[in-house]
Every structure is written in structure tokens, then in C-alpha cells.
């Protein structure tokens, strides 16, 4: 995969995008100034942001896929999925209160997350390979918070922006990898007591485990892999729902209880 940006520019853009996250302010999408930059350039910017956070002492706690559902791809007008990383300070409590001001314009989406117990590496992994390498599956809600103004972005800009990662809530009821058919598992999201979104696992690339396999494939582009013990969020089953201060979210998962939070 080709690149167009030199290391100094990658570092500069990483600082620019990360500062927007740290200072909770919107920026314009970076492809406005770098129209020729590639997906690999964006990947390098994201990895540079990750390096900056690790150097600061933040801990890496997981990986995520983004834009994996037909609903999201249509909502955002992009052409393929992207991935990102999760840091320790992204984690929010199940049933807890979330500081609305620590986000720019948070949106929530219901997901299924996997915890691996074997390394997943390479380009041709199947759903079965992923399930064989899965310790447990747990319901989760991701809180995305694109740094781009009004969520206006393209795939390259969002990849550079750590795929809009900023928060996540893990449910309290996990299951073994073959306890359910993850493609037909139903999910119902309520905002302030009203049903706003629903769907089933197949909304994510036909099967959430296929999203984990695709993550391994995308990581292979930079000679990386999914190490054993990684928490992987597979992408939204539902469209993302914009939050306002005071909003409560409750997501019910078929056979796996519910995940809730309130933005205060």
C-alpha cells in the first residue's frame, strides 16, 4: 500500500488529531488539506497517536472495528470498514454515569465484543477460526466521538482519527463463543425508555466474528496481529444514536442481559 506523507507530516497530523480529542474540540477532516493522502497514511497517523498515548502512560485495553454494518456504511457514506484501538481511559462503567463534557458529540451504538485466547494472525481467517480463538463474548456499547465537525468525514480521515473511538461500556453477562449464533442474536436499544434502534448480529458483516477476521486481515497490512487476550469490539449492529446531556441508554441483548448508562 502506498503512502504520500513523510514521517514529519504524519507526526504533525497525529498531534493535530489527537489534540482535538484531548481538548474535546472539533476539527475539519484532514483530507481537506491533504487530498492525496492514502488509507496507509491514515493508518500510520493512527498508530502514531497510539504511540503518543502509550508514551504518556495510558494502557492499551482493546481494539475495535468501525463502519462494519450496512447501516453505518450507508449512514456515513464510506466504502469499507476501519479499525481503531481502545485505551484504559475510554472505559466507562455498566449502569454508570458518564460525564457528557468529556466528549465532543457522543453517539452510542450496540455491539458484540470478543475476548480472544489465541493469537489471530493473517488474511484468510474464517468465522470458525475466530470462534476457536475466543475465550468469551460479551455485549458492549461503544461511545463514538468523531473529532470531525458534524461527523463529516471520509474513510481516510476517520481511520486517522482512531475510527472515532473514545468510550465503551462492557455488559455484565458474558457467554462462551458457541453458546449462541451471533449472527441471529437480537439487540434492542432504548433511549430514555423509548425504543430507538434494533437489529441482529448479522448486521455486522453478516456475522460479528467475520469482523474479527477482517481486523486480523487489516492488521496484516502493517505486519501486526490480534494477540491472545485482546478485547475486540466488532462494530455497531445498530446505527449510532446522538446523545445529549441527560440521555439514558439501555440496550437489551437476547440472552445476555442489558447494558446501560446515563450522560450527565
Amino acid at each position: 500500500m502506498n503512502t504520500t506523507l513523510d514521517q514529519a507530516t504524519i507526526e504533525k497530523l497525529a498531534e493535530h488529531v489527537e489534540n482535538a480529542e484531548l481538548e474535546r474540540r472539533e476539527i475539519l477532516k484532514i483530507t481537506d488539506d491533504y487530498p492525496n493522502m492514502t488509507f496507509m497514511d491514515a493508518t500510520k497517523i493512527q498508530w502514531e497517536i497510539r504511540k503518543r498515548k502509550l508514551a504518556r502512560g495510558d494502557k492499551l485495553v482493546g481494539l475495535k472495528m468501525g463502519l462494519t454494518s450496512w447501516a453505518k456504511i450507508a449512514q456515513m457514506g464510506v466504502e469499507k470498514p476501519c479499525y481503531g484501538f481502545l485505551m484504559d481511559y475510554f472505559s466507562e462503567a455498566d449502569g454508570g454515569k458518564i460525564d457528557f463534557d468529556s466528549y465532543i458529540h457522543p453517539k452510542v451504538e450496540a455491539e458484540i465484543a470478543f475476548v480472544t485466547n489465541k493469537d489471530l494472525r493473517g488474511r484468510d481467517l474464517t468465522i470458525e477460526d475466530v470462534l476457536d480463538a475466543t475465550e468469551l463474548v460479551v455485549p458492549a456499547v461503544e461511545i463514538i466521538d468523531s473529532r470531525y465537525k458534524d461527523f463529516k468525514f471520509d474513510l481516510i480521515s476517520v481511520m486517522a482519527d482512531n475510527s472515532s473511538s473514545r468510550g465503551f461500556v462492557v455488559g455484565s453477562h458474558c457467554a462462551g463463543p458457541r453458546d449462541f449464533d451471533w449472527s441471529t442474536l437480537g439487540v434492542v436499544m432504548e433511549k430514555n425508555g423509548e425504543i430507538v434502534e434494533l437489529g441482529a448480529g448479522a448486521a455486522v458483516l453478516d456475522h460479528p466474528a467475520a469482523s474479527v477476521a477482517m481486523l486480523a486481515d487489516m492488521l496484516a497490512d502493517v505486519d501486526e496481529y490480534i494477540p491472545a487476550g485482546t478485547f475486540v469490539m466488532t462494530g455497531g449492529i445498530t446505527a449510532a444514536v446522538l446523545m445529549e446531556r441527560g440521555d439514558s441508554i439501555n440496550v437489551r441483548y437476547q440472552g445476555l442481559g442489558s447494558v446501560g448508562m446515563k450522560f450527565v
Binding site: 434492542v188 425504543i195 434494533l198
Partner: peptide
């Protein structure tokens, strides 16, 4: 079965075209 959260996947000619859950019908 939890009839409110039960998931549904519809395939047409081998392709997933939509998903839903029990709550889609009057909750």
C-alpha cells in the same frame, strides 16, 4: 425465548438484506 429481543436475519438469494428484533413490532 425472550420474544422482545429475539433477533431476526432475512436473506434474499443468499445475501443478508435486513436484520431486526422482536421489539420492532409494537415493542
Amino acid at each position: 425465548l425472550d420474544l422482545a429481543t429475539v433477533g431476526m436475519v432475512v436473506e434474499k438469494n443468499g445475501r443478508v438484506i435486513s436484520t431486526g428484533a422482536g421489539a420492532a413490532a409494537l415493542a
